[in-house]
Write a protein that binds this DNA or RNA. Structure first.
Lengths: 221, 221
DNA sequence: CGACCCATTGACGGTGGTCAAGGGCTGTGG
DNA sequence: CCACAGCCCTTGACCACCGTCAATGGGTCG
């Protein structure tokens, strides 16, 4: 999820790049537009999403520092991207990326790895969106987020009572999990009532009983 | 979606491969197992899916001849794969693939293209699963399937009254679209009642009014 | 012809969406 | 320093879409 490239490779890569700084809320990739650029995020966070004409929105992922952006695109972008806070990133054209590949073939391998990992995450999310209940989605998300923050190694559970920052609005959460903000709120409240998590404030969650969370997330029988 | 490699490249590639023949229903990739192989399908069709312990299933895609299989995997497979009919495929170890890359670097670029295209499809499916209603999912699927069968060019609508083979069971359809077979059936019936499609038999659909279908699929306002 | 499987249709119920009111936090201005 | 506005979150009441359960229909194969 985070930086898949070494500092050296990044340095080489960004030599061909433009540095860009974005205010919160800036939409810098528009779904359907010609896909001209790749991006590498240096600072800040970005949400990736698709929309329907009537305003329904599905967030397909979040991207933080080190994240490589622009893989889900053919001729045109398959998604939009919006800065969640103050974002700094490197932008380079698809053409210059091809040139970089000539110089640094290992990059191509790495990008393939990144793309493959994205695919793994996408399939996980499809299972979540297609087949899990509201509370299972919330539980799955909380554990996935803990892994992302490296509160625990991939595939392991966080320690009981681990504290986790959650710098997302309920709206973002809902649009990511295919729910409404009300359902997100209710599900979090239920987990709290059941003593599985605690919510000291809106942007912090304590994973009181990660094991119980995991049993809900994986629909253990 | 279909063959992204030229015949020459395929021929080179398959020199390092084992040829395998599978009976219908054979599960030849198991989610969670060590990801040892890549596959290229020569004949027949395959469904890719993820499951929950209680039996809920999400089909993440279908793969036909020419399809390259095994990208959504890190250490372990992120999905299972099952032969839908009699399948012939080439199987080669990840190690030998790396060796092939040395000989034929263009393959690596092509695989990256394939992975990127898969990502585009995955994001489309996330929007469908997270935010579309039952009938919108069915409409979207029918149009996507028409593109897949090359009844129409990508991004264009099929001609009115185009006839389409649909060699999927209602169960497969339901598990792909995150619905139940009853809801799939009811939605198809409704589209038929509304004169938008016709269903001469279970495995054939006539796209009577593709424009109307598209307006439903894209939630046109 | 009958058995079996799958799809369709109907009746009913539940999960989650919609609509609306209330609460808490933050920032601003008097 | 307090008051108030505005925003977001929470909670409640109600409702609708879709899932569940069950009966029926149709096609295929023995």
């Amino acid at each position: 999820m985070c930086n898949a490239l070494t500092d050296d490779e990044l340095e080489f890569l960004t030599r061909a790049a433009q540095r860009v700084s974005l205010a919160p809320g800036t939409v810098f990739v528009e779904e359907g537009e010609k896909a001209s650029y790749f991006y590498n995020i240096n600072q800040g966070n970005v949400r990736l999403f698709k929309s329907l004409p009537d305003g329904r929105r599905q967030i397909t992922g979040f991207a933080g520092p080190g994240y490589f952006l622009g893989l889900a695109a053919g001729e045109n972008n398959a998604f939009s991207a919006e800065a969640m806070d103050h974002v700094k990133l490197c932008r380079f054209s698809r053409a210059s990326l091809m040139a970089v590949f000539e110089e640094l073939p290992v990059l191509e391998r790495k990008l393939l790895d990144v793309a493959m990992h994205e695919l793994v995450l996408a399939q996980q999310q499809m299972l979540l969106l297609g087949r899990k209940t509201a509370i299972e989605r919330i539980a799955s998300f909380l554990l996935a987020w803990a892994e992302r923050l490296e509160i625990c190694p991939a595939g392991r559970l966080p320690a009981p009572n681990a504290v986790m920052k959650l710098p997302l609005s309920r709206t973002d959460l809902a649009d990511y999990l295919g729910l409404t903000i009300e359902t997100v709120s209710r599900s979090l409240s239920q987990l709290k009532r059941d003593g599985i998590i605690d919510i000291p404030n809106i942007h912090e969650i304590i994973l009181t009983r990660p094991r119980a969370l995991s049993e809900i997330a994986e629909a253990a029988v």
